[in-house]
């Protein structure tokens, strides 16, 4: 609470001013207060998923730089809703056989979309002596 507001409330409590006058004074204080800065830009939302791979194995430098629009990932996850149920059953059986007991029927498109939504804050970095991998959103 600033000093002027404190003074107004003090005068009100001492009965020097009425409640209406205090209200008008506080309203006048609000008007005189400088407006908060509006030029603060919100953080731009990332648009792309970037995958960078730099490798030096076999003494031949290899560089992979892939940029995928996040919109494409969002559209891609909608494909999950188009997978026929019998294909999901077969995929589940194969996953179980490979030691991954995962039920694809439990995976809902909304969950996948939420996953893509939160990719914004993700950065993966793998640093090995001859290979560097970086995955991030920009």
């Amino acid at each position: 609470m600033n000093e002027q507001r404190k003074d107004i409330l003090q005068m009100l409590s001492e009965g020097k001013i009425t409640m209406e006058e205090a209200d008008q004074l506080i309203a006048a204080l609000e008007r005189d207060r400088p407006a908060p800065p509006t030029d603060v830009q919100p953080k731009a939302k990332p648009k792309y998923l970037r995958v960078l791979v730099e490798s030096n194995d076999d003494s031949t430098p290899t560089r992979v730089n892939v940029r995928v629009p996040l919109q494409l990932l969002r559209a891609g996850v909608r494909l999950a809703a188009l997978i026929p149920p019998q294909a999901l059953g077969e995929a589940n059986a194969e996953l179980s056989r490979s030691g991954v007991p995962f039920d694809l029927n439990q995976l809902k498109p909304e969950q996948l979309e939420a996953l893509v939504e939160y990719l914004d804050d993700m950065t993966i970095e793998v640093d090995q002596p001859d290979t560097k991998v970086r995955v991030y959103c920009e």
């Binding site: 648009k47 792309y48 031949t60 430098p61 290899t62 560089r63 992979v64 730089n65 892939v66 940029r67 995928v68 629009p69 919109q71 494409l72 969002r74 559209a75």
Partner: peptide
Amino acid sequence: ALPGTRLDLKR
């Protein structure tokens, strides 16, 4: 959603 996709490979 495809515009903006870029694939750059160098070996």
